[in-house]
Simulated scan of single mutants.
Amino acid sequence: MNVFPDFDSLSGIGDLKVVIGAMLTIILIVAVLMIIVSAFLWAIATSTGNPTVAAKASAGVFIALGAAILAGGGVTWMNWLIQLGEQL
């Protein structure tokens, strides 16, 4: 039995896919830029001996990394679930 969601049953689903793809791209770009800026601030704060800013910058790096992983992994997870549904 081949079970697959009917994405064409709703009107405007193509526009929704375009919007979601654009949002995913923006999220990934912002996350990468946040990683770069936070890592730069972390390095500067550590070298100048400012532990408060270094702690906040390191938290920024890890939060941005988590956001990038969740945004990128969401597509992979959804594709895996669709393939799993086809096998049932």
Rank of each mutant, 00 (worst) to 15 (best):
S11G: 07
L84R: 15
I63N: 00
K17A: 08
G14M: 12
V53L: 15
A59M: 10
M1G: 04
G66C: 05
K17C: 04
A57P: 01
I13H: 14
P51K: 02
F62R: 00
I63W: 00
I20Y: 14
A43D: 07
A54P: 01
F40H: 14
I44L: 13
A71F: 01
A54C: 01
G49H: 12
M34Y: 06
S58P: 00
G21F: 03
D6W: 05
A22G: 12
L10H: 13
A22Q: 13
A55R: 11
S38H: 03
G14N: 12
W77E: 05
A57F: 01
L81C: 12
S47M: 15
L33R: 02
A39M: 03
G66I: 01
N2C: 02
L88V: 15
G60I: 03
I63G: 03
L24A: 10
L41P: 03
I36L: 11
V32G: 08
F40I: 14
W42L: 15
S58A: 10
I69P: 00
K17L: 09
D15Y: 02
N2M: 00
V75S: 07
V30Q: 06
F40Q: 10
L10Y: 13
V61N: 02
G49Y: 03
L81K: 13
A59K: 09
L70F: 06
V37N: 04
I82V: 15
M34R: 09
A54H: 02
M23L: 13
L81D: 12
V37Q: 09
A55S: 10
A43Y: 08
V18E: 07
Q87A: 06
G74S: 06
L84V: 07
I26V: 13
L33N: 05
L33F: 06
I27A: 13
P51E: 05
W80F: 15
L81Y: 14
T46I: 07
I29W: 07
T76I: 10
S9P: 03
M78K: 15
G72K: 00
A71D: 00
G73T: 08
S47C: 10
A43R: 08
L65F: 10
T25F: 10
G49M: 08
G85R: 11
L28F: 04
A59C: 05
G21M: 04
G72R: 00
V53W: 07
V75Y: 11
V61R: 06
T76A: 09
I63Y: 02
N2Y: 07
G73L: 08
T25V: 09
M78C: 12
F7L: 09
G72W: 04
A64H: 03
L16H: 07
A31R: 02
F4M: 13
K56R: 04
A31Y: 00
I27N: 11
L33M: 06
N50T: 12
M23E: 13
N2W: 03
L41W: 12
A54R: 02
A68F: 13
A43H: 06
I63H: 00
A59I: 10
F7S: 08
S9G: 04
L16D: 05
D15G: 11
P51A: 00
S9R: 15
A45C: 05
L84M: 15
V37L: 11
I20E: 13
G73F: 04
G49F: 05
V18S: 07
N2A: 05
D6P: 05
G72S: 01
I35H: 02
